[in-house]
Amino acid sequence: MGGNTIRRCARAATPEELLGGRRQPRPSQLDPYKSHLDKRWAEGFTNAIQLHSELQALGYRGSYQIISDYPRPRRRRRIRVVGPWFVSARAEELPGLHSFATGLEKDWDAVVQGLTSQWSSGPVEGRVNHIKMVKRQMFGRAKLPLLRKRVLLTAAR
């Protein structure tokens, strides 16, 4: 056990004090201004530099970084509507852009879900990519048992 843990256990008068869980977050310099930031965000104004100068005019003395970090969880959930973009992409004489727009439109529900969901398939995709790389490296050299062993050994790293 660490020294801080031992001191905390020694200071506790009852076992319940040890089971208190995480501490409450400390008050932030931004707390008095969060309602203003929320209102501006709802109005569609998301430029952190402009929000910082607005809050400075209201008396905020904190850093730009705190303001930039505050709406970050909401930025992930926001998705701009690009419907009219599909129409203009089809009007152009660029077959690559046309097929890209058509593919996006076909899978639009999946695109929205991928951009707004908190879950990511990135680690799984990376693992699949790694397995394909190992398979390509071993093409024609060995049978399935060796491939299986290599994939499982690299997964343990």
Score class of each variant (00 low, 15 high):
2 G>A: 11
3 G>A: 05
6 I>K: 08
11 R>A: 13
14 T>Y: 13
14 T>H: 15
19 L>H: 07
19 L>V: 05
20 G>W: 01
25 P>D: 15
29 Q>I: 09
30 L>K: 11
34 K>F: 04
34 K>E: 14
37 L>P: 04
38 D>S: 09
39 K>N: 08
46 T>Y: 01
46 T>N: 04
47 N>F: 05
48 A>L: 00
49 I>Y: 02
49 I>S: 05
53 S>R: 08
53 S>M: 01
57 A>E: 14
58 L>D: 00
65 Q>E: 08
67 I>K: 00
68 S>L: 00
69 D>T: 03
71 P>W: 10
71 P>I: 15
71 P>H: 12
71 P>D: 13
73 P>K: 07
75 R>L: 12
79 I>G: 01
81 V>K: 01
82 V>Y: 02
84 P>N: 11
85 W>C: 08
87 V>Y: 05
90 R>Y: 05
91 A>P: 00
92 E>R: 14
92 E>N: 07
93 E>M: 02
94 L>W: 07
94 L>C: 10
95 P>A: 15
97 L>D: 03
104 L>C: 11
106 K>F: 08
107 D>M: 12
108 W>N: 04
111 V>C: 11
113 Q>K: 07
115 L>K: 03
116 T>W: 02
116 T>N: 06
118 Q>S: 09
118 Q>G: 14
120 S>Y: 00
123 P>R: 03
125 E>N: 06
126 G>H: 05
127 R>L: 14
129 N>E: 13
131 I>V: 14
132 K>Y: 03
134 V>D: 01
134 V>F: 05
140 G>E: 04
144 L>A: 11
147 L>Y: 05
148 R>W: 03
148 R>H: 08
152 L>P: 03
153 L>K: 05
155 A>D: 13
